[in-house]
Amino acid sequence: MSTHPFDLAVALQPAGDDLWRGHTSPAYANMVGPFGGVSAAQALSAVLRHPARLGDPVALTVNFASALADGPFDVVARPARTNRSTQHWVLDVRQDGQTVLTGTAFTALRRETWGRDEHAMPVVPPASEVAPATGPRRVEWVNRYEMRFIEGGIPDQWDGREQGASITRLWLRDAPPRPLDFASLAALSDVFFPRIWRRRALLVPIGTVSLTVYFHADAAGLARAGTGHLLGQAQAQAFRSGYFDQTAQLWSEAGELLATTHQVVYYKE
């Protein structure tokens, strides 16, 4: 059994039909509850472990109804409909009989077709030429990832000044390095810090409400990425009335677009 912190965090035990039991991980602790990316990965892990699963993940959406408390939780992963080559899943994460996360997943048997990436990887220095991020780390989960910021890092001064844009580009991967799979890619899709902190340099309270990940790579594409760095790029679209959205893209070192993600985040002033 792997002793990597991520594998320990997403480990689930079967507890009945469509039911799995897990436990929050102190290695991925956030300011309130666990890191949302690992919660999404735990929900997806129930699908990946399900004996009735057809194909590999194409899309995952999770909605954070409440922060998970430290301790055990149950994941219900139910195949709502199975077609010849596609499958639709309903997800429900519960603690003490209450739903804390809802979601859906879509898996499919992929086939060879014509394909192109329209969103090309930006031209940036290789990871070996970008220094790892240093400085204080306010929450534990950040220590589980190697981050090398190319532009748009965490503000040096929290003075509330508005920045020109919310874009961030960085090289990132699990720490220690770990072969990429669908669960870890789902978690990596949530590594980007909230765009409002970049745009305003003000540490306002935030909370992700809904996160969607689209997996463009198949299992072979993830194997090609291996333990290498991924290039991540994130930017917001609009900040308004207490909510903002941000999109992100993740490329392998070879320039293959592996996943895109979109999330809606609550903020308070």
Results as ranks from 00 to 15, higher is better:
T3I: 12
H4Y: 08
F6C: 05
G22E: 04
P26G: 08
Y28N: 02
Y28P: 00
M31T: 13
G33S: 08
G36I: 01
S39K: 01
S39V: 15
A41V: 11
S45K: 11
V47L: 02
H50G: 09
L54Q: 13
P57M: 08
P57E: 03
T61N: 09
F64D: 07
S66R: 15
A67T: 12
L68I: 10
D74V: 04
R81L: 08
N83Q: 14
R84T: 11
L91P: 03
D92Y: 03
L109P: 04
R110V: 12
R110L: 13
E118V: 10
A120W: 03
E129F: 02
A133R: 13
R137P: 07
R138D: 06
V139L: 05
G152F: 01
G152L: 05
Q157L: 13
W158N: 10
W158L: 15
G160Y: 01
I167T: 15
T168N: 04
W171E: 05
P176N: 06
P177Y: 04
R178G: 03
F182Q: 08
L185V: 09
L188H: 05
F193T: 03
R199M: 13
R199D: 02
R200C: 10
L211I: 03
V213L: 06
F215I: 10
G221N: 09
A223I: 01
A236T: 00
A238W: 01
F244I: 05
T247W: 03
T247I: 00
T247P: 04
T247E: 11
W251I: 00
W251H: 07
S252W: 04
V265Q: 03
